[in-house]
Amino acid sequence: MKSRWLPYALFAAWVVVLATTPLWGSNYIVRVAIMIAMFTGLTLSWNFIGGFAGYPSFSTAAFFGIGCYAGALAQRAGVPMVLAWIVATVVVGAIAAALGAIILKMRGHYFAIASIGIVEVARLIISSWGSLTGGGDGLNVPLMSGGPNAVARIFLLVMIVIMIMSFIVTVIVDRSRLGFGLRCIQQNEDAANMVGVNNRLYKVIAYTLSALFCGTIGAAHASWTGYIDPSDSFSILMSVKVPVMCLLGGPGTLLGPVIGTAAFMMLEEVFWANFLDYNRAILGAVIVILIFFLPGGLLALRYRDIARRFGLLREPKMAA
C-alpha cells in the first residue's frame, strides 16, 4: 500500500493544471484543455465497460451524439441549460440500459460489432427524423451570452466538473462489490456466474455507467459549440479514439484513462500541428504499437526496470 494516495494526488494536480490554463495559457491552450477534460470524461466512462468488465464497446459516439441531440432539443424547448444536460444524461442512461439488456447477451467480437451498429443506427435515425432533428441541416443551440473567452472559461470548468464526477464514480465502483464483480467477469465470465455474480445485471450496469456521462458531455458540448449535425455528433472516430486512449493508459485502473487521454491528446496536437497530412496514419500506428507492445497500457510498464536499464536508478539491494 505504498502509493495509496498517489493516484488521487496526481489527479488533483492534473485538475489544477487544466483549470488554471486561462491564467497562463493562450486561447489555443485553453481549447486543448477543454478537449482533454471532455475526452477524459468519455474515457473514464468507457473504462466501466471496456476496462472493468472487459467488453470492447464502441458505443461512445452513440451516447455522445444522443446526448448532443437530447440536450439541444431540450434547450430549444426552453429548458434551462444545466437542466437540459441532466435531461440528456437521464435519456442516454435509459437508452443504454435498454440496449445493453439486448446486446450484452453477446460476447467478444459479436458484442463489439453490435456496439458499432448502435452508433450507425442512432446516426441514421437522427438524420432521417428531419421534422424533429433538422436532419442533415443540423440544429442551432441557444448560445450563451458573453464573449468567446468568458464562454470558453465556463465550459472549461463544466468539462472539468464532469471529469471529476466520472473519476469519483470510478473510485466508488473500484472499491465496491460492483467493481469486484466486473473484474471477475472480465477474467472469467462463466466462473464469475458460478461464484454467484449476476453477470447480466452487472454488465448492464457497467454499460449504463459507460453511457451516463457521455450524455452529459454531449449535451454540454452542444451548448458550447452552438450547432450540431449528425455527422459530427456521431463520429465513428470518437468511438475508436476513446478506447485507444483508455488502453494506452491502462484499462480497469483509476488513473489509466486520465493518463492515456492526456498522452494521446497531446501527441495528437503535436502531430496535427506538424504533420497535417499524416496525422490519421500516425493514429493508426499508435494503435498497432499499443496492441503489440503495451497490452496493459502505460501504467503496466515496469518503469523501475526501464530506469535501471538506462542507468537512471541504482540497482536495489536484494529486497525480499
Binding site: R177, G181, A191, A192, M194
Partner: peptide, 21 residues
C-alpha cells in the same frame, strides 16, 4: 479449473465469499 487468473489467490477466494457467500 476456472480461476480468475490475474487476481491473487486471496481475491479469488474472496469472490466466492462476496457473491456466493
Amino acid at each position: 479449473v476456472q480461476p480468475f487468473p490475474r487476481m491473487t489467490v486471496l481475491e479469488n477466494v474472496a469472490a466466492g465469499a462476496l457473491f456466493g457467500g
